[in-house]
C-alpha cells in the first residue's frame, strides 16, 4: 500500500496518527505539569478528529459519537479537572526533574520499533485502510507506560494512565473501527470516574505524606517517625 494512492482524507488520518504519536513523545520530555496536561488535551483533540475522520471514510456513523465523547472527555473535561486539581494543590509552578530526557526519548523510539515488529502479524490479518496505524496505537500505550515509569509525581503518572487509555481507544478505532457502543460508553465513564477518584487520592496522599512524590510511599510512615 503506497500512501500516494490513497485519498487525502486517508492520508490525513496517517498524518494525525503520526501527530498523536508525537504528542506521546512530547509528553515524555515535558517537565512542567501544566504543559503536560495541555499536551494530553491536544492528544485527546487529535484523537477525536481522527475518530471523526475514520467515521467519515469508513461510513460508520456510531464512530461520530465516540469522536464527540473523546473530544468532550479527553480534550476538555479531564484536562480541566486535572488542571483544577493542580491549581488546588498549588503545583502549577512545579518542575519535575527528568533524570535522562534524551535517553528516555531514545527508549521511546525503541518502543516504537518494538511495537512495529509486534504489530506486523496483526497488520497482515487486517485489510482496513488504517491497518498501518495499529503499531502506532500500541506504541502510544507503551510510551504512556514509559511515562509512568520515568515519573515520580502522582499527577504525571495519572496523565500517563489516561494516555494509556487514549492508546487503547486508538487501537480499537484503527483495527476494528471502534468497540461496540456500550463498551465504549462504559470505558468513557470509567475513565471519568477514575479522574474524579484520582483527585480524591491526590488530596489523601498530600495530607498523609505531605507530598505527591510516589517514591516517598516506599517508606513506612510510622517507622520513620521514631
Amino acid at each position: 500500500m503506497n500512501i500516494a494512492n490513497l485519498s487525502h482524507y486517508e492520508q490525513a488520518i496517517f498524518v494525525l496518527s503520526a501527530l498523536v504519536l508525537y504528542t506521546s513523545f512530547s509528553m515524555l520530555a515535558q517537565s512542567r505539569l501544566f504543559n503536560l496536561i495541555n499536551i494530553f488535551a491536544w492528544q485527546g483533540t487529535l484523537l477525536g478528529i481522527t475518530a471523526a475522520l475514520v467515521a467519515f471514510i469508513s461510513n460508520q456513523p456510531h464512530l461520530y459519537i465516540s469522536a464527540l465523547l473523546t473530544l468532550v472527555l479527553k480534550a476538555w473535561l479531564i484536562p480541566w479537572m486535572l488542571r483544577k486539581q493542580v491549581m488546588r494543590l498549588k503545583l502549577q509552578r512545579e518542575i519535575e526533574t527528568l533524570a535522562t530526557p534524551t535517553l528516555t526519548s531514545l527508549a521511546g523510539v525503541g518502543l516504537v520499533i518494538f511495537s512495529y515488529y509486534i504489530a506486523l502479524p496483526i497488520k497482515s490479518l487486517s485489510n482496513s485502510i488504517t491497518r498501518n496505524t495499529i503499531s502506532e496505537s500500541l506504541a502510544i500505550v507503551l510510551l504512556a507506560m514509559l511515562l509512568i515509569i520515568t515519573r515520580r509525581q502522582a499527577v504525571s503518572q495519572v496523565v500517563g494512565f489516561m494516555a494509556i487509555e487514549n492508546g487503547l481507544f486508538f487501537a480499537a478505532l484503527v483495527s476494528t473501527y471502534g468497540m461496540p457502543m456500550i463498551v465504549e460508553l462504559g470505558i468513557a465513564f470509567d475513565v471519568l470516574v477514575a479522574a474524579v477518584l484520582f483527585g480524591v487520592f491526590f488530596f489523601e496522599m498530600r495530607s498523609s505524606i505531605d507530598s505527591l512524590d510516589v517514591d516517598q510511599m516506599n517508606r513506612l510512615h510510622e517507622v520513620d517517625k521514631r
Partner: peptide, 15 residues
Amino acid sequence: LLSLLGMLSHVILEV
C-alpha cells in the same frame, strides 16, 4: 528525534 520519527512514520505508515 523529529527526523527519526519522520523515518519511522515513513516505514510504519507509508509503505
